[in-house]
């Protein structure tokens, strides 16, 4: 059966040829892959000396119709992009020139997405020191969620804490405390602010009202102490006059 032997030889030969070809191909693919990694890394260097392509971020008003009903998804993707943008700059230059614009686009696309409001209100003011931008975003938050006490409270907080302006802060705090879900500490904070603005009449009136409305015994106690201190101060002032 010479034919069979011949075929077997050919078969073995073919196998070894195939294997050689396979090894060669794996080699080629691997070297191409490493070359590709190298190029990617070189290209990465070009990126850092250039501003991110958010230059290109269109306003949400344009984006929304193009999103074809995927506006929430688009907002989510942008949100992921925003968080990583924040993370990236937090680790490096702590400079966030595009943050507020990105947040605004997200809000345009998906106004019921509440986290960007908190994020913008706190991070933009505390971390990026863009008080005005932070307050604008919070104002939009109030529009979208008028029942949430946090947004007016943060605006008030930003006015007082960052700008030291209790006069502009008070109306927002009042608005926040008037909401049913507002916690009691806002009232005491407002009392402090009224005291600071020297309109003691207002402060007293406010504390008395607060005293009546508050049910928590501890806080009532604290408010009572404030009222007494105010009254004491008033009588002292009257004496010195």
């Amino acid at each position: 059966m010479p034919l069979v032997v011949n075929m077997k030889d050919a078969f073995v030969h073919k196998m070894s040829l195939r294997r050689k070809k396979g090894v060669f191909l794996i080699g080629v693919v691997c070297s191409l892959f490493f070359l590709q990694i190298h190029i990617q890394n070189s290209l990465f260097r070009y990126q850092s000396d250039q501003e991110e392509s958010f230059l290109y971020l269109p306003s949400g008003a344009y984006l929304k119709p193009i999103a074809l009903g995927y506006d929430q998804v688009l907002a989510d993707l942008l949100w992921i992009k925003t968080v990583s943008y924040f993370g990236g700059h937090y680790m490096t230059d702590q400079n966030y020139p595009w943050l507020h614009q990105m947040l605004n686009v997200i809000i345009d696309l998906d106004p019921r997405f509440d986290f960007p409001y908190y994020f913008g209100g706190i991070v933009l003011s505390l971390e990026a020191s863009q008080i005005e931008n932070a307050n604008k975003i919070l104002e939009r938050g109030i529009q979208a969620y008028p029942e949430k006490w946090e947004y007016p409270f943060y605006i008030g907080f930003n006015h007082y804490y960052h700008e030291g302006n209790a006069e502009t802060a008070l109306p927002y705090l009042e608005r926040a405390s008037a909401l049913p879900s507002a916690p009691d500490f806002i009232r005491s904070m407002m009392g402090t602010l009224y005291t600071k603005t020297k309109s003691k009449d207002m402060a007293l009136r406010f504390f008395r009202e607060a005293y009546q409305n508050t049910k928590d015994e501890n806080i009532r106690q604290k408010i009572a102490e404030k009222i007494e201190a105010l009254l004491a101060e008033e009588s002292k002032n009257a004496e010195s006059d």
């Binding site: 191409l32 070359l35 590709q36 190029i39 990617q40 070189s42 290209l43 070009y46």
Partner: peptide, 9 residues
């Protein structure tokens, strides 16, 4: 480099 990247990929 960008073109090269595309071609290699």
């Amino acid at each position: 480099l960008t073109i090269l990247y595309g071609v290699i990929y």
